[in-house]
């Protein structure tokens, strides 16, 4: 009796609660991406619905932002400097705690949706990615190195910022879907996809869905063996190479 009563009250409460006018719910097509030997990247779809008390709530002033963060990584940026005529890696800066993968899609460019302060609080947009520089620089300034790190990740398709109808597809008035591109070099680990519903620059509702990327099958097995049992792995590689060389001799001698 007791739980049912609480539920009934809760439903009633939600229905009349004015601040909960618009809510967002979402899900992912694939919660686990497996990297196998033929992996050349993947695309998962983050889809969801905006539920509103008033189903004809105006689209004017309403914005959606979807952000995907990969596992944390340390990015070391090195600058090539000329020394005795050759170009060598010179000064460097290490940024810790940056996501190894970052994707953000929004209905409008982020700076048109809300204030810089809000963007930074929710870590939205490539410009707002926070990190601490771990090493001090002998020359040059930190923002330049940070920009280089972001640019390098973007060139690999691992950092992306998109906006407009091509980024977030709105179906009807309440359904949306975002295609999240995962390039072949996508790092393994746990990911988080988040959807934010903005109205007039304020976050009204948010929804988080985790997903995982992991090596699978032979790829996973080889990687684990190489790191957990390096002696066994190395010995196997050597013995197999010797075996392959010997086998080739036998085969081609007969041919």
């Amino acid at each position: 009796m007791q739980p049912r009563l609480i539920l009934a009250i809760a439903v009633l409460f939600c229905a009349v609660w004015p601040g909960r006018a618009e809510e967002i719910h979402a899900g992912l097509t694939e919660p686990l991406i497996r990297i196998t030997s033929n992996f050349t990247g993947a695309e998962i779809v983050f889809f969801g619905a905006i539920s509103a008390e008033d189903t004809f709530a105006s689209r004017e002033g309403r914005d959606l932002v979807v952000v995907v963060r990969g596992p944390e990584a340390n990015l070391t940026v090195r600058r090539k400097e000329q020394m005795a005529g050759i170009w060598v890696n010179g000064s460097q800066a290490t940024f810790s705690g940056l996501p190894a993968y970052y994707f953000v899609a929004s209905t409008r460019p982020l700076d048109q949706i809300t204030t810089q302060e809000t963007l930074e609080r929710y870590q939205l947009g490539l410009a707002g990615l926070h990190s601490a520089a771990e090493t001090s620089l002998s020359s040059g300034d930190v923002p330049e190195y940070r920009a280089a790190a972001v640019e390098a990740r973007a060139a690999q398709g691992l950092y992306r910022e998109l906006s407009g109808e091509s980024a977030i597809e709105i179906i009807g008035n309440t359904l949306f879907q975002v295609k999240i591109p995962l390039p072949a070099e996508v790092p393994v680990g746990s990911y988080e996809a988040e959807a934010f519903l903005f109205r007039d620059g304020n976050v009204m509702s948010g929804y988080t869905a985790p997903f995982f990327i992991d090596k699978s099958g032979l790829e996973r097995w080889l990687f684990e063996k190489a790191h957990d049992e390096p002696f066994f792995y190395g010995l196997t590689c050597v013995l197999l190479s010797i075996g392959a060389g010997w086998l080739a001799t036998v085969i081609f001698q007969r041919a």
Binding site: A73, T76, R78, W87, N89, Y145, A148, G189
Partner: peptide, 17 residues
């Protein structure tokens, strides 16, 4: 490759946490 000025002066190494 060592002598010609590199088109991209920065290189980035990623270490997963």
């Amino acid at each position: 490759d060592l002598v010609i000025p590199p088109g991209e002066p920065f290189s980035v190494e990623v270490k997963m946490g």
